[in-house]
Design a protein around this nucleic acid. Structure first.
Length: 551
RNA sequence: UGGGGCGUCGCCAAGUGGUUAAGGCAUCGGGUUUUGAUCCCGGUAUUCGGAGGUUCGAAUCCUCCCGCCCCAGCCA
């Protein structure tokens, strides 16, 4: 559908070559989140890439939870992740997979490794292990337990498994090379004792496989052909390959790394996002200021715009920082094309049309969208008393037409989809504050040009004062005041924007908005895009989130 | 510092020895407009981290140098 052909990325090139050479006959990918937090915009890139690759090459993509660390994981996250991936529009055919489904298989592969003399139970504690590991420049030294007989290791592993050994007292380690320049290859721990109930396996296990011992094997079990992960795992690849070549796996998956998405003014670290939630800086994981998928959804960002944005991103090995304005561009693009228009006055200023009959009301018809007639039109009650925005009136009559395209005493303005009016008089209270404007309307100007000599300064939005609906608006700004909240010496908490949320109460919205539902998107003309807040809005109280302002 | 990876416009990025060095975002002009929105036109890198070299010809090949990122969790 796109007229501009997007160049193929290096992973697509590899897959194409693999297919042509017959190395793989069907492409299988996977999105492998750990259920220890909510998904964010960075994950969306990975999701779109993995599911997208499967789609492009007619293969499949699994959703697989990498739940090998019960300490941090929870079913709440599993459910949220499933909802988020679905919402983004992807399907993994059948049930999601879990690393924990393979614990039994993984355990017997561990036994196999021991029998083959390629793994051993080590009794070094954490601190000792660190000392033995060496540093970036010094090689490590062998553990004194390294040559322990396989039979003994097998026996100890079983004891670890049944809970007979204390946490931290022993580990199972792969026997590789303590002098490898790649620290990951210096006899990495592949099983550790954790006497913690697992969200799926309960207290069945007292030991859990480490990431490196699990991931490649999980891929192999599922027949994953191209295991795509982020750059920081590049140093783990030799280890990934060591396992796939030292174990009798049903298939040999290959790992490829690409640069993760970084956005300025945004934080994409599950740990730190969790901190924001736990410390109450935001209203939960789905706070509309959060870069989480659930936060974006609640804010009113569409799944389509997230997908479009992700697809526009390069899949390469450079790790850059994308300007959030680029993301916002796609949010506006989709909303501009699809959101129905509506009017809402944020700072109401009452105006009375002195020449409009007191009890008269006519229903004006406004289009749902300026250039889409498939969206239903709207009925706008027009009455003698209306509200316009205070910012759309100025007492300074010397303002040029070019500079101020709004109401000024003695001049005209067009009410959007309505009449042309003229401001005649300002009413103020004792303190000098403007409380009302007396105006007059020009009959016959709905959908018609005003008579000769009447030149409206511009078009402003409005709402009937006697037949409209009240609502609250939650307007958001960037959560952080600096482009790189995560850099520098100070904590990112110090860079939180104190004005990231502004609540505007008692706004006046056109009547039709009373029936707005969660999931609908609106453009409040001349203001921005808004969507019902699923948390605060209720039958008796309309609450909208500002998804994003108009440019 | 040992290993791994990366450096093309303010940001992202195509480019795979011969192109006027794409495109998007941002930005700056101008036009249309009953949203100061959208839309439409147009401007914005003699140059590809730097220096040498190979070649008729280099962002693309070679050499050296510089800079940035990742790895020393019983996290993933």
């Amino acid at each position: 559908m796109t007229d501009i052909e997007k160049p193929t990325n290096f992973i697509q090139q590899i897959i194409t070559a693999d297919l042509e050479a017959g190395r793989v006959k069907e492409v299988v990918t996977r999105f492998p989140p750990e259920p220890n937090g909510y998904l964010h915009i960075g994950h969306a890139k990975s999701i779109c890439l993995n599911f997208g690759l499967a789609e492009q090459f007619g293969g499949t993509c699994n959703l697989r939870f990498d739940d090998t660390n019960p300490e941090k994981e929870d079913d709440e996250y599993v459910q949220a992740i499933i909802e988020d991936v679905r919402w983004l529009g992807f399907d993994w055919g059948g049930e999601p997979r879990f690393a924990s489904d393979y614990f039994g298989q993984l355990y017997s592969w561990a036994q196999q490794l021991i029998s083959d003399g390629k793994a051993y139970i080590c009794e070094l504690n954490a601190e000792q292990m660190r000392e033995y590991r060496g540093t970036l420049t010094e090689v490590g030294k062998n553990s004194p337990y390294r040559e322990r007989p396989a039979a003994k290791s097998l026996e100890l592993l079983e004891q670890m498994k049944v809970g007979a050994i204390d946490e931290g007292a022993m580990t199972l380690r792969a026997k590789i090379d303590m002098s490898s320049p790649n620290i990951n290859m210096r006899d990495p721990v592949i099983y550790r004792i954790k006497k913690i109930p697992h969200h799926r396996t309960g207290d069945e296990w007292n030991i859990y496989p480490a990431y490196d011992f699990a991931h490649g094997q999980e891929d192999a079990i599922e027949g994953v052909t191209h295991s795509v992960c982020t750059l920081e795992f590049a140093a783990n690849r030799p280890l990934y390959e060591w396992f796939t070549s030292n174990l009798p796996l049903p298939s040999i998956p290959r790992q490829y790394e690409f640069g993760r998405l970084n956005l300025n003014y945004t934080m994409t670290s599950k740990r730190k996002l969790k901190q924001l939630v736990d410390e109450g800086h935001v209203d939960g994981w789905n706070d509309p200021r959060m870069p989480t998928i659930s936060g974006l959804r609640r804010r009113g960002v569409t799944a389509a715009s997230v997908r479009e944005f992700c697809d526009s991103l390069a899949v390469a090995k450079t790790d850059g920082i994308v300007d959030v304005a680029q993301f916002e561009h796609f949010i506006r693009e989709d909303l501009n094309n699809n959101a129905s228009r509506a009017m809402c006055v944020l700072n109401p200023l009452k105006i009375t049309l002195s020449n409009y009959p007191k009890d008269q009301q006519e229903l004006l018809v406004a289009p749902g969208h300026p250039n889409r007639d498939d969206l239903p039109s709207r009925e706008l009650p027009f009455t003698r008393e209306l509200y316009i925005d205070r910012n759309d009136f100025n007492e300074d009559t010397t303002l040029s037409r070019k500079k101020f395209k709004r109401l000024v005493i003695g001049e005209y303005v067009r009410l959007r989809s309505g009449y042309v009016i003229r401001a005649d008089e300002v009413l103020k209270d004792a303190t000098g504050e403007i409380i009302e404007l007396i105006c007059s309307y020009i009959p016959g100007t709905v959908g018609q040009d005003p008579p000769e000599g009447v030149r409206p300064r511009g078009v402003i939005h409005w709402v009937s004062a006697t037949n409209s609906v009240d609502c609250d608006l939650y307007c958001y700004e960037k959560l952080f005041t600096v482009a790189a909240p995560d850099a520098g010496e100070e904590s990112f908490i110090d860079h939180l924007n104190p004005d990231s949320l502004q609540i505007i109460k008692q706004c006046k919205a056109e009547l039709g908005l009373a029936g707005a539902e969660v999931g609908q998107h609106f453009q409040f003309e001349r203001e921005g895009y808004y969507a019902i807040d699923a948390k605060h809005s209720s039958a008796g109280k309309l609450v909208f989130n500002r998804t994003i302002a108009l440019r």
